[in-house]
Design a protein around this nucleic acid. Sequence first.
DNA 1: CACCAGGCCGTGC
DNA 2: GCACGGCATGGT
Length: 246
Amino acid sequence: MEENLRETLLGGQSFSWVEEDDGSFSAVLDGRVCRIRSLSDAAADPFLYDYFDLGYDYEKAREEIAAKDGILRQAVESTGLIRLLHQDHWIAAISFILSQNNNIKRITGLYRRLSERYGHEVEPGRFTFPSPAELAQATEEELRSLGTGFRAPFILDAVRKASLLDTIAPLPFDEAMEALQTIKGIGPKVASCILIFSYQRREGFPMDVWMKKVMREYYPGMTPEYFHPYEALSQQYLFSWIRSGS
DNA sequence: CACCAGGCCGTGC
DNA sequence: GCACGGCATGGT
C-alpha cells in the first residue's frame, strides 16, 4: 500500500509542515529547513529517520489493524499508509495546547505566527519554532494579538513548566497523563496527543469531537482498549477516515 | 444570524 | 465525582 505522506504530515499530528507547489513538503525542524518528497529522502538523515519512526513496521501494524473489523478495514484502505511522527516534546506541547477548540488550518497559522514572531530565521521567510526561553519573551497581550485567544495564558504556563517535559518519558502512561495535565490548557485529549506524537506512546487514544462521533456511531459502549495494541494508530486511521467524510 | 473546530477551566452541586 | 457555561478566532 502506498504511503500517505500528506495525511501523516498535514492530517493533524503536526502543524510544522507545509506543502510546496511542486508537491514536496517542508518544515523548519532541528534548526534547519527539512524538505521531503518521499520517505526515501528521510532514510539517510538520522534526525528524519527518527522523526518518521522508520524503524517501526507500519505496514505490518496496518495489516493487523485492517484485520480487526470492517470499520477499521474501511478506514485503513481509504487512507493509505500513515505513520506516527516522533516530534519534539516542546513543539508538540504548544501545538496541541493551540489545538483545543480549534481547527487544523487555524492551528497551523498560529504555529507559523508564533515562529515568525519569537523564533529565528534560518532561511529567508523560514523560522524555527521558538524555544521555551524565546517564548518567555512573550506577554499575554502579545500572544492574544497573534490570535491565540483564551489559549494565551496556557502557553505562558507551559513556558514556566517547560522543564516538566524532560521528566515524562520514564513514567507509566497514566502517571505521564497526570503530570502533563498539571500544565494549564492540557487536559486528557491534549495530553494523549503529546504522549503519542512526541513520546511514542502507542497506547494513547485522543478523544476529540471527531472520535466521539466514531465511537458513538460505530463502537457504542466500547473503550479504546478494544484497539489494543494499536490504540494510537487505529485512532489515527479512524480520525482520518471520519474527517474525510467516512 | 447560527454553529463548529484534534477541549479545557472554573464553578456549583 | 459529574454537568454545565464560557471562551477568542475565523470559517461555513
